[in-house]
Deep mutational scan, measured.
Amino acid sequence: SPEEIKAKALDLLNKKLHRANKFGQDQADIDSLQRQINRVEKFGVDLNSKLAEELGLV
């Protein structure tokens, strides 16, 4: 269901964000992850996106 997909995506992105902060990645990478999280919260996951591929939806 779209809600489950959204939850999985947010979980994955939050893990990536945590790792980025923990290991001191570029601020641009961290900002990009934050924008992705905001986009998923607002609009859900686009099944044509790279994120959908990472989640194994495509």
Rank of each mutant, 00 (worst) to 15 (best):
D31F: 04
D11C: 14
S32G: 07
E41N: 10
Q36R: 03
L51I: 08
S32T: 11
K8A: 12
R19G: 07
A20Y: 11
K50L: 10
Q34H: 12
Q34Y: 11
V40A: 02
I30Y: 04
K6W: 04
S49C: 04
D26P: 15
E3C: 10
K22T: 12
D11N: 12
A20W: 12
R19K: 10
D31A: 09
A9H: 01
L12S: 03
I30K: 05
K42Y: 06
G24V: 05
L10Q: 02
K8C: 07
L13A: 00
E54I: 09
E3M: 08
L51P: 01
N48T: 12
N38H: 11
K6T: 07
L55H: 01
R19S: 11
N38D: 14
V40W: 03
S1W: 09
E54V: 06
L12V: 07
R19F: 15
P2Y: 14
E54R: 04
R35Y: 11
D29W: 15
L13C: 01
L10H: 01
K22C: 13
A20Q: 04
L17M: 05
L55S: 01
K42P: 00
E41I: 14
K50Y: 09
V45P: 02
D29N: 11
L55V: 04
A9W: 05
K42F: 05
K16S: 04
F23S: 12
K22Q: 13
L55F: 02
D29M: 15
L57F: 11
A52M: 08
L57E: 03
L47N: 04
L57R: 03
D46L: 06
V45L: 12
G44Y: 01
D29G: 09
L51G: 01
E53D: 06
R19V: 10
K42L: 13
V40T: 04
R35L: 13
V58A: 09
V40M: 03
A52T: 02
L51K: 01
A7Y: 10
D46N: 08
F43N: 07
K42C: 08
D46G: 06
L47P: 12
E54F: 09
S1I: 08
K15D: 08
P2R: 11
R19N: 14
E3P: 05
S32R: 15
K8Q: 09
L13K: 00
A9V: 10
V40G: 00
G56D: 05
S32D: 13
L51E: 03
K15Q: 12
E3H: 07
K42D: 05
A7L: 12
A52K: 01
F43R: 03
A52R: 03
I5F: 10
R39V: 09
D31C: 08
G24N: 09
Q36N: 03
H18C: 13
K22A: 12
